[in-house]
């Protein structure tokens, strides 16, 4: 066991180190921004990978959870909180106000409610009929388009923005300039990753989730309620996706209905690179993909960012289809 595992880490380290070195030499600013954006991708990819680990199908509506979360936050920021006299922008060095700190958890809760509802209405019935994983994936594609259409019906097809005040970029050493909201994004993502780690390692539900991901049959035999575990998996996955959506909409200073759909390929690239189903793998994969996407803009049209992620995905499937941390195919 020691051999392959060590080589796996060695390979991951090599990939990360060479990417990092190339990036640091050519574009330190893009490297830093890429790492911070990678944090947002990580939140999305972790949820995608965890859902795959437990539900055993690729959830194509995961990007739409991000979109939904971001728009729910918009709803709270524009309608609910101002009605309570809680509208604000420009908290300290950030463009957003403390209202966002209230809207973020509310949006996360709303998105996980939607996920549990979808499981009840769509995925659960299919699962009980033991539909093939690929049929579940098809259903999730239908759900993705329906959710996207719903968002566009309610909020229109145009671009929105959270309430914001203009703020200076933050000047770091090496002439690196970072938008302040990116720092918030990185910090918030880091905190959530830590909370997730505690949840998975310390709580009964978290341990049940890991057990189910490892071996569903064995988990059921040892008395784990797999249906409840699956519901929790949806909650966690939508929670993180919504957080990623809100943080990205904040950091990008704009919100479009395509937000989540356009990130689907980068998310899958991160999850596959980390090994589908592996949570820590997805985290690492997302950082690598995030940096690669940002640094590529040094040479490539930024419109190709998702193509860069797709390139990583292809290379990974060609040379290491099990991912850096996953099991061998």
């Amino acid at each position: 066991m020691a051999g392959p595992r060590r080589s796996r880490w060695l390979l991951a380290g090599l990939v990360a180190a060479s990417l990092g070195a190339a990036a640091a030499l050519t574009a330190p600013e893009l490297l830093v921004n890429g790492l911070l954006l990678g944090c947002a991708l990580a939140l999305g990819a972790v949820g995608l990978s965890a859902a795959y680990g437990i539900l055993k199908f690729i959830h194509l509506a995961h990007g739409e959870f991000m979109t939904l979360g971001a728009y729910l936050a918009l709803f709270f920021l524009m309608e609910v909180l101002p009605a309570l006299g809680l509208d604000s922008a420009g908290l300290g060095l950030f463009t957003f106000g403390y209202a966002l700190l209230l809207a973020l958890p509310a949006a996360m809760a709303g998105a996980s409610l939607a996920a549990v509802g979808l499981d009840w209405a769509v995925y659960g019935p299919l699962r009980r009929r033991s539909a093939a994983p690929i049929v579940m994936a098809m259903a999730s594609l239908g759900v993705a388009f329906a959710l996207r259409a719903l968002v566009q019906m309610v909020w229109g097809n145009g671009i929105h923005q959270y309430p914001r005040a203009s703020r200076e970029f933050i000047q770091l050493p090496l002439d690196i300039r970072v938008p302040p909201d990116y720092l918030f994004l990185g910090a918030a993502a880091g905190i959530m990753a830590l909370l997730l780690q505690v949840f998975l390692a310390r709580t009964r539900i978290g341990r049940a989730m890991r057990a189910t991901a490892d071996n569903p049959v064995l988990a059921r035999v040892s008395g784990i309620n797999t249906e409840a575990t699956i519901r929790w998996a949806w909650v966690v996955s939508a929670f993180l996706a919504a957080a990623a959506g809100v943080l990205l909409a904040t950091a990008n200073a704009q919100l479009r209905p395509e937000l989540g759909w356009n990130l689907l390929i980068p998310l899958f690239a991160a999850a596959v690179l980390g090994g589908m189903g592996s949570i820590y793998g997805a985290l690492t994969g997302a950082l690598v993909v995030g940096v690669a996407m940002e640094v590529s803009t040094q040479w490539l049209n930024p419109s190709y960012k998702s193509a860069v992620a797709f390139g990583i995905l292809l290379l990974c499937l060609l040379f290491r289809p099990g991912g850096l941390f996953g099991e061998r195919e």
Binding site: F57, L60, I134, A137, S306, F310, L317, L318
Partner: peptide, 28 residues
């Protein structure tokens, strides 16, 4: 050649990516 030896879901992900990439190439 790249995907059909792997788990079936990988074909879905890759076809999704190739369609998006083709569209972007013709756009840019």
């Amino acid at each position: 050649l790249v995907t059909l030896r792997l788990r079936e879901e990988y074909l879905a992900i890759v076809t999704l990516g190739i369609a998006e990439t083709i569209r972007r190439v013709f756009l840019n």
